[in-house]
Computed example of a mutant assay.
Amino acid sequence: MLRAFRVVAFIEGITTILLFLVAMPLKYGLDYDALIRPFGMAHGVAWLAYLAAMAVCLPGKGFTIAEWLRTFVFALFPTGTFLNDPLIARRQEQLSRA
């Protein structure tokens, strides 16, 4: 289940980067806003999928409350899901060894 969560987190991180580094600069720099709606929608769906994946994939895997909070808070910032991935990968490795 943690592998599925990591995939969802990766997609959420990519959609955030696309929104902030492609769509928004085009809108505000070149007055081209055609990408805002589709990239924004993709990011919104990915964000909701991330929250759902947290609720489904993380329970029972030994995460502390602080790690749950970290996993949520890191998703609020661009590239945060990538910075949090080593934590999830370590837990995935621990569970596969057990």
Rank of each mutant, 00 (worst) to 15 (best):
T16K: 04
W68V: 10
A42P: 11
I36S: 05
T79Y: 14
F82E: 07
P59K: 06
L21F: 14
A23F: 01
L35S: 00
P78F: 06
R3L: 14
R70Q: 09
A89D: 03
F82P: 02
E93G: 09
I14N: 00
F82C: 09
I17Q: 00
G62V: 05
T15W: 11
E12P: 09
T15A: 01
T16Y: 12
Y50P: 13
P59M: 01
L83T: 10
A75D: 14
W47E: 09
G80A: 07
Y32S: 01
R37L: 09
L2M: 06
V7F: 11
T16V: 03
R37I: 05
W68S: 11
Q92V: 02
F20W: 12
R90C: 01
G80K: 07
T79Q: 09
G44S: 07
P86T: 01
L19M: 14
L2G: 03
L21Y: 10
A42W: 03
E93P: 00
E12I: 03
G29C: 02
V73H: 10
I11T: 10
W47M: 13
L69G: 13
L30P: 04
A75N: 15
G40F: 08
D33N: 06
Y32H: 07
T81Y: 01
A52W: 11
E93Q: 10
F20Y: 15
K27P: 04
L35K: 04
P78R: 02
L18Y: 06
M54H: 13
G60L: 11
F39V: 01
A89F: 00
G40I: 03
L48R: 10
V56C: 12
I36C: 03
T71S: 15
E93Y: 05
R90T: 03
Y32V: 05
C57N: 04
F63L: 08
D85Y: 10
A34E: 09
E93V: 05
E67D: 08
A23M: 07
P25K: 00
V56E: 14
Y28G: 03
A4Q: 09
C57W: 05
L58F: 12
W68I: 12
A42F: 07
A9G: 04
L21D: 08
I65H: 14
F63T: 04
L69V: 15
R70Y: 15
M54C: 15
L30C: 05
L48T: 06
R6D: 12
A46W: 04
F20I: 06
L83V: 13
A46K: 06
D31L: 12
L2Q: 04
D33I: 03
I14C: 07
P38S: 04
M1H: 05
I11Y: 04
F72C: 05
F5N: 02
W47V: 14
V73Y: 11
A66C: 07
V73E: 08
F72H: 13
T71Q: 10
L76D: 13
F39C: 01
A46L: 11
L83C: 12
D33A: 11
M41G: 06
T79N: 06
A89I: 00
A55W: 14
G60K: 09
T64R: 10
L2P: 00
A4Y: 11
A75W: 15
G29Q: 02
L95N: 02
F20M: 12
P25E: 00
R6N: 06
A23G: 05
T79K: 10
A75R: 15
T16D: 13
I17S: 01
L2T: 01
L87C: 07
G44L: 08
F72S: 10
P59V: 04
F39E: 00
V45S: 07
